[in-house]
């Protein structure tokens, strides 16, 4: 069995690029759609640059699934969600749960970009006693709503937060990102049944449909198709979108809750490792750590 430690390269700290992150913050209110999309695209570029340096410095991480989900995270935190650092005590704030908790570095970097974490803290990623554990922990970071890492946990929790909101008549929405491979866990389908049957219209389940899981393609492992039909059969309002298209994503998120009264399921078509030429849609990059040369190449593609 391969353990992640086997994959740790000998990292020369001098070869690791600097740890700065320019914090853009939320899309300014009143921005036009074009301005919002430009803001999100620039934020996603910077988040990816910082993410790859964090993974390189830690010698650990899940860069493939991080790069597939970053555009979704950035669109949620910088634009779609009613959730900002000064709102953490507000019960009606929108909720976000990263069920695919192995993409933690992407979440941390996005939280820093949105002002929830000081950017300097990112350099502690996976260091001894860091708050930035290899998987996000609710007890370590205020903005993390639930500890995740084992797959199939986030969606039931999101159903619970959405249920609480419904009981309270709250306007808050709950967004949860699950990996597509993660949908092989049965607990997700238990939760989808609950969400559909109870008409939790303020719930938005986003499937990071990058078609790859740790060891192989999803289709070659335990296929999900016809995924849209399955989600619809469980009572979801299903929307398919290019998960790297910020404009399309913000339009989709603006449509939650759906007029149909159903929970929304967004199948976000993504590529693992996007948009790096040698990583994209390549199963080898689930948790591979890039060499110094590969970091330089990736950064040049993220200019």
């Amino acid at each position: 069995m391969t353990v992640e430690e086997d994959l740790v390269p000998q990292v020369d700290p001098q070869a690791v690029p600097g740890d700065t992150l320019t914090v853009l913050g939320r899309v300014p209110s009143g921005a036009s759609r074009d301005e919002a999309v430009a803001h999100l695209a620039e934020a996603a570029r910077l988040v990816r640059r910082r993410d790859i340096m964090m993974v390189r410095a830690a010698g650990l991480g899940h860069i493939g699934g991080e790069f597939s989900v970053i555009d979704i995270l950035v669109t949620l935190y910088l634009h779609a969600m009613n959730m900002s650092p000064d709102q953490l005590g507000d019960p009606d704030r929108d909720r976000f749960i990263l069920s695919k908790g192995h993409a933690a570095a992407a979440l941390y970097t996005t939280l820093a970009m949105a002002g929830f974490l000081p950017p300097e803290q990112l350099s502690t990623f996976m260091q001894p006693l860091s708050q930035l554990n290899g998987h996000p922990a609710r007890t370590k970071i205020a903005a993390v709503e639930a500890s995740t890492g084992p797959l199939g946990h986030g969606l039931p929790i999101a159903v619970g937060t959405a249920f609480a909101g419904k009981l309270d008549g709250s306007s808050r929405r709950t967004f949860v990102v699950v990996g597509d491979g993660e949908l092989q866990e049965g607990s997700n389908w238990e939760a989808l049944m609950t969400a559909g049957n109870h008409g939790l219209d303020h719930l938005c389940v986003i499937v990071d449909r990058n078609r790859l899981q740790q060891g192989a393609r999803v289709a070659d492992t335990n296929d999900l198709e016809p995924l849209a039909d399955k989600l619809a059969a469980f009572g979801m309002e299903v929307v398919e979108v290019n998960g790297h298209d910020h404009g399309a994503l913000l339009d989709v998120f603006a449509g939650v809750p759906a007029p149909s009264g159903k929970p929304t399921a967004v199948i976000a078509h993504t590529d693992k490792g996007h948009p790096i030429s040698f990583m994209s849609d390549n199963v080898a990059w689930h948790h591979k750590v890039p060499s110094a040369e590969q970091v330089a190449q990736a950064l040049s593609e993220l200019e």
Partner: peptide, 20 residues
Amino acid sequence: VGIAEQDMVGVGAGLANGGK
């Protein structure tokens, strides 16, 4: 939640997150 114990405990955690 019906006969679905993983969902049941997860939903419980979410309800707690939602202030219940």
